[in-house]
């Protein structure tokens, strides 16, 4: 099975502090992979390296076939990224946002027009197309943001806590979008603090103090730790951490 993401002893140090300590793992094409860990465990640092945003200290890694040391710009062109902290331009309309993201990903005008219509219909936003994004409820913004992260049909999409604070129904609707996306062959790499969402993933990894302490399917991890939920597994692994501040 073709690997979408492959790392080997990937490490990042900041001075004398090792944020990411020799992590080795791979993610298969079309997988929904949950990347978990407590605050301070090194998740964000690891993700930034994989997205081509941060130069690693040592080790090897490739994302969508491109090297994280020498081909960072190609990585950025071939991945989608969505974070809860920044999603869309609130003072632009929905259509303007779609146009903006389409343009910076290098889509042709024809393609942008096609995508705009597809997106608006799929998300049921035809009537709001010319409204400012600021007027949309949070759940809709999340869904739109996710769709825009995919506008250039990337092979992999990175989702950084995409469902924080959203109501339970919208959260599930969002995950259905994720399922559809993975079904069509796009790899989804997601971080989340909702442990029930960890159960939606094909496999999850849990980082503690810069290392990957567990990586397997949710079912196998529960068996291994004699736990009935991912919440318990996480608690057992993460509570002994020294950087768990």
């Amino acid at each position: 099975m073709e690997a979408s993401i492959k790392t080997e002893n990937l490490t990042k140090c900041f001075g004398s502090f090792t944020a990411v300590n020799n992590i080795t793992f791979k993610v298969d094409k079309g997988e929904i992979f949950g990347f978990l860990g407590a605050n301070g465990a090194g998740k964000t640092t690891a993700m930034r390296m994989l997205c081509g945003l941060l130069h690693p200290t040592s080790g090897k890694a490739s994302v969508a076939g491109f090297d994280v040391f020498t081909q960072r710009e190609q990585i950025k062109k071939n991945i989608g990224y969505m974070s809860q902290k920044f999603s869309l331009y609130e003072d632009l309309t929905i259509k303007e946002n779609i146009n903006f993201f389409g343009t910076i990903y290098g889509l042709s005008n024809t393609k942008i027009k096609e995508k705009t219509e597809q997106l608006l219909i799929r998300l049921n936003l035809m009537e709001e197309a010319n409204s400012l994004v600021a007027s949309l409820p949070l759940g809709w913004k999340q869904k739109l943001s996710f769709s825009l992260a995919l506008i250039h049909d990337p092979k992999i999409v990175f989702l950084d806590e995409p469902t924080g604070g959203v109501d339970p129904i919208t959260r599930r609707q969002f995950w259905e979008l994720i399922y559809e996306t993975a079904d069509s062959g796009t790899t989804v790499f997601v971080t989340t603090h909702y442990m029930d969402e960890a159960e939606y993933c094909n496999r999850v990894s849990i980082m503690v103090d810069g290392k990957i302490e567990a990586i397997d399917t949710p079912d196998n991890l529960k068996k291994l730790f004699d736990a009935s939920t991912m919440d318990e597994v996480f608690y057992l692994l993460a509570r002994g951490a020294s950087t768990q501040e």
């Binding site: 605050n39 924080g164 442990m195 919440d231 996480f234 608690y235 993460a238 768990q244």
Partner: peptide, 11 residues
């Protein structure tokens, strides 16, 4: 007001 938002399950 939302003291635990964005914080991991252990914390």
């Amino acid at each position: 007001d939302e003291p635990t938002t964005g914080v991991d399950p252990v914390s």
